[in-house]
Design a protein around this nucleic acid. Structure first.
Length: 597
RNA sequence: GGGGGAGUAGCUCAAUUGGUUAGAGUGCCACCCUGUCACGGUGGAUGUUGCGGGUUCAAGUCCCGUCUCUCUCGCCA
């Protein structure tokens, strides 16, 4: 028997018991005549007291932290002045009578008992050590609990969980695939799924009605703070005979349940606000606005039309826009604050950024001398300006203004401390456009997902300007993080051919690329739709972690490498031969194509 | 692929305009200490300043190249 109790469960009522504990040496405090050891396991910490005269201690030459040991001893009550209120087991301690070394530790590459800010590459290489730390350990347990709660909630609603293939076909649209060469079929490749999109739709065609899966997804794209490269998990959901509102209801209920049970921040109960995509872009310059931030862009183009400030007047004249962002109570800020904000806007593509400050004694601004009293007062009124506020102005073509505003708004909100850190703010972004114009080629392309149902159906496709057609496509956003995107699917073959035709694909191409799906839809497909919230991002928000790697047990680094397992790695020539693969490296690479057999 | 930041002891960082033997904290090793819980005290060991080249009497510091990490834009049906 390795233990009679764990390190987190002994209390005052256990005093007098003879116990056996096993765990990691968390810390050692050697006082010469008495030695204290904090013994740690998954469940907690217990203090072990050792008399250095004991023979088992004499036989030992090292007490290195993070070694795994077993202690026998008696549970004794701590005297009142030595109770440690910070420990759940702080009212007792173990007087050791014997011990055994179960797994000795060498010198550690970084500390476990305290955070020594070790660099992430080191932490990833020794992930098993890092995972012993309280914070990370708790994050991973939280993730486990969230996932089991999701399963319970979805199952209770009548959803069934399915498994879909991991080795599947390369999909022609979307992100880069991870490819797996086929041994039996020379020259052919499997792909890891970017999402189980087609499978879940086919399950609806098969009549399963309500599907979910905690689904691994694989995309060969570059990393971000909120995007782990390579692989991630999503709660993949699909439902038959539903409209957008039915999906929203399920997901709002699930989110409210999970965020109430596991989140530590307040949030307004569902229904969550819905913002059309175009409105979100116009106001926030983003399709994932952080609604904790009160800043937004206000259109003031008409006020500047024909004014004496030529830069703005000519922008409006040539079809551009002028948008204002109201920065509350910044009149007291030094000049440098305004200069730095302008510099920030310029780094994000702005030609410049004008501003007007309403101080107690009139307006302060580099541009106010070009403006009439009517314009200035009009700006004050349109912008809802109070004394002490300032307006920042961005003037350019609409798309660029949105991009710059999308960068300036979060930065300004952060600098001014306008973002409430103790709150979750959810919203749906709805009415995504079906098509957009490729900026380089000028051609009409699908803007998000070719499988979404266009609003207005075939009639809209046949009669409306392509760029004006909206899709039943939606995202759910929390605190500026896109949690999920989903859509009501296009399940009508004729409608699909027509949508693809608008995007420049003729019938034969569609049949070749999406033949499986189309032929399924030709044999009786129910209207259906779904959504796929990212599990990692949900846990990231619940754990209040700014970095997604902190909620994944064994994440890739930013270069999509596993520093602990050494993946990706070279393979033997024999393996390559079996797969009919010959490796041709780029000139710069130094490593050989394959190690010797 | 582009842009910003970083690279000095196992780890976190310092080192004035280029100027003595590159320091501190932490960890590690040894010793002292019977009530600590980030224990305390004394002493000690530990450096290719990422790598390569250049300028200079002299380079951690300046210049060029290169590599790595990180954040970000592109990318993410």
């Amino acid at each position: 028997m390795y233990r009679s109790h764990n390190c987190g469960e002994l209390r005052k009522c256990d005093v007098g018991k003879t116990v056996r504990l096993a765990g990691w040496i968390h810390s050692v405090r050697d006082h010469g005549g008495v030695i204290f050891i904090d013994l740690r396991d998954h469940y907690g910490l217990t203090q072990v007291v050792i008399d250095p005269e004991k023979s088992f201690y004499q036989a030992l030459d090292r007490w290195r932290v993070e070694s795994v040991v077993r202690f026998d001893g008696e549970v004794v009550a701590r005297s009142a002045e030595t109770v440690n209120p910070k420990l759940a087991t702080g009212e007792i301690e173990i007087r050791a009578t014997d011990m055994e070394m179960l797994g000795e530790a060498e010198v550690l590459p970084f500390q476990v008992a305290k955070d020594d800010c070790a660099p992430e590459a080191m932490r990833l290489k020794y992930r098993f050590l890092d995972l012993r730390k309280d914070k990370l350990h708790n994050n991973i347990i939280l993730r486990s609990k969230v996932i089991s709660e999701i399963r319970r909630y979805m199952t209770d609603l009548g959803f069934n969980e399915f498994q879909t293939p991991i080795l599947t076909a390369s999909s022609p649209e979307g992100a880069r695939d991870y490819l797996v060469p086929s041994r039996l079929h020379p020259g052919k490749f499997y792909a890891l799924p970017q999402a189980p999109q087609q499978f879940k739709q086919l399950l609806m065609v098969s009549g399963f009605d309500r599907y979910f899966q905690i689904a691994p997804c694989f995309r060969d794209e570059d990393a971000r703070a909120d995007r782990s490269p390579g692989e991630f998990y999503q709660l993949d959901v699909e439902m038959s005979f539903v409209e957008q509102d039915d999906i929203f209801k399920v997901i709002e209920g699930l989110i409210a349940d999970v965020f109430t049970k596991f989140g530590k921040k307040k949030f307004a109960p569902p229904p969550f606000p819905r913002i059309p995509y175009r409105e979100s872009m116009r106001r926030f310059g983003s399709d994932k606005p952080d609604l904790r931030n009160p800043l937004e862009m206000i259109d003031v183009s008409e006020l500047f039309r024909g004014c004496d400030f030529k830069a703005f007047a000519s922008t409006v004249e040539s079809g551009g826009v002028v948008r204002a962002i109201r920065a509350p109570q910044v009149a007291g800020k030094p000049r440098k604050f305004f200069d730095d904000m302008i510099k920030f806007a310029q780094e994000n593509g702005a030609k410049g950024m004008a501003y007007i400050i309403w101080t107690g004694e009139g307006e302060k601004s580099p541009i106010v001398k070009f403006l009439t009293r009517e314009i200035i007062d009009g700006l004050k009124q349109t912008g809802g300006v109070q004394e002490g506020d300032a307006l920042f102005f961005l003037a350019d073509q609409e798309k660029l203004v949105q991009k710059i505003g999308g960068a300036v708004i979060p930065e300004l909100g952060r600098q001014l401390g306008l973002i409430d850190q103790d709150e979750f703010k959810f919203c749906w972004i709805v009415d995504f456009p079906m098509f957009e114009r490729d900026e380089e080629t000028g051609e009409i392309i699908f803007s998000h997902n070719p499988f979404s149902m266009p609003q207005g159906g075939l009639e809209a496709l046949n009669t409306k300007e392509p760029l004006d057609i909206l899709a039943w496509q939606y995202d759910i956003v929390c605190n500026g993080i896109e949690l999920s995107s989903g859509a009501i699917r296009n399940h009508i073959p004729e409608l699909m051919y027509r949508a693809f035709e608008i995007a420049g694909y003729d019938r034969s191409v569609v049949d070749r690329k999406f033949g499986g799906m189309i032929s399924a839809f030709k044999l009786g497909a129910p209207p259906h739709g779904g959504i796929a919230p990212g599990v990692d991002r949900m846990v990231m928000l619940l754990a209040d972690e700014p970095n997604i790697r902190e909620v994944i047990a064994f994440p890739f680094n930013q270069q999509a490498e596993d520093l602990m397992m050494n993946a990706p790695s070279e393979v033997t020539l024999k393996q390559l031969r079996e797969l009919h693969i010959e490796v041709k490296l780029p000139k710069k690479a130094e490593a050989p194509a394959a190690s010797r057999e």
